[in-house]
Computed example of a mutant assay.
Amino acid sequence: MLLFPPAACPRLIVKIGSALLVAPDGSVRRAWLEGIAADIAARAQAGQQVAVVSSGAIALGARRLGLPKGGRASLEDAQAAAATGQIALSQVWAEVLGAEGLTAAQMLVTLDDLEDRRRYLNASATLDRLLGLGVVPILNENDSVATEEIRFGDNDRLAARVAQAAGAAGVILLSDIDGLYDRNPALLGAVHIARVERIDAGIEAMADRGSASGMGSGGMVSKIAAARIANAAGAHLAIASGRIDRPLSAEARHTLFVAEKSAPARKAWLAGGITARGTIHVDAGAATALAAGKSLLAAGATRVEGDFARGDLIVIAAPDGRPLARGLSEYPSDDAARIAGTRSDEHAALLGYTPRSTLVHRSHMALL
């Protein structure tokens, strides 16, 4: 059966890694890319709207500029390579899609574009309009201006956030591997995992941090992180091999991460947030209350980490350090630390002002 058929998935996000699009010598694998364009055209003809998150700009630019280590020797090299390679990348996409009668559009985004709520909504509206017009958006991180502190770092998580912004039901991560294995697939006896109903510590332990090609920035760890984001937004995510011709029409082995019931849009955005400003650790009682849909009270907090302001996105962590939820803090970090572990009737004296009722209100929180 076709992965994410149009009838069941009106909108689909496809992520393509650098090693699939760019050959080791830095040239575009054009024949393979033409097959992808044909697959997208077939899906579009069947009524599916497709957006592509395409890596490859740095690898293409590095070849043209003669930069060492694929353009990743330094941040400055990566930025220069991205600026040069993005022109070539957008041109080849326009050509191969144009040959299939499709129009391509380029969208370059930074982490802040999808982490800031207002900018996220603007990006979402642009995606919605382009897809509604039958255009194929080609997205990439704007590596020419991104820095280590304000970047996704891999296009796997970017694809998941784009799926959320576009309201897509499915995400396909085309990679140099055909899915998740219970250990490094190079090891004897490695077993392929076809379906993941829930991402837990056992699934995360299976991830191998390497990128087989050495060309990209993601590995299995980033793909599982992407699956968490996509699933939180109600989108299923598949990891599939792109090492075959026409991978979007082939019935090949893959790993499917199954989404739970879709969260409301704002909570899905919170759950998918990447740039949390701090962490509030809680005790077992508070962890149980959060799971039951309660707000986080100061009495259940045990420790505060980070430097954050009121309204910043923070992580709420269990006693063992495992992330339980993400939410918007009702207090700056200094004040949150002052009242952590105390009763509500003590807060006014500790803070010197009339306190708020919660550290993080359930309306501004998303469980992970």
Rank of each mutant, 00 (worst) to 15 (best):
S222A: 09
R277Y: 08
A230V: 04
L2P: 13
V96L: 06
A233H: 04
D39P: 06
A146W: 00
A233V: 07
P264Y: 00
A51V: 07
L174W: 01
P5K: 04
D113R: 00
L21K: 08
R195W: 01
L114R: 04
I280N: 02
A205G: 07
R303D: 10
R243P: 03
A250Y: 02
G66R: 11
L187D: 13
R322L: 15
V145M: 09
F257K: 01
D77K: 05
L248S: 03
T354M: 04
A160G: 01
A366L: 11
D112I: 13
T147Q: 05
S144F: 04
T354L: 08
A348L: 15
P319A: 10
E305N: 05
V282M: 10
A82F: 11
I36C: 05
A309R: 14
I58K: 10
A19L: 08
A44W: 00
V135K: 12
L97N: 03
G35K: 11
W32L: 09
G167T: 08
A165I: 00
T126G: 13
F152L: 06
L297R: 10
L367A: 12
A166M: 02
V258C: 05
R129Q: 14
I224A: 06
I203T: 06
R157S: 12
K15P: 06
A348R: 15
G167S: 05
A232D: 11
Y181M: 00
A299R: 15
G210A: 14
D307N: 13
V52E: 03
V135A: 13
V22C: 08
D345T: 07
R243L: 15
D200S: 02
I224H: 02
S55Y: 10
P355C: 04
I36T: 04
P319Y: 11
F152P: 08
L187N: 14
V191H: 09
R362L: 10
D334R: 12
G327M: 12
G306Q: 05
G56L: 01
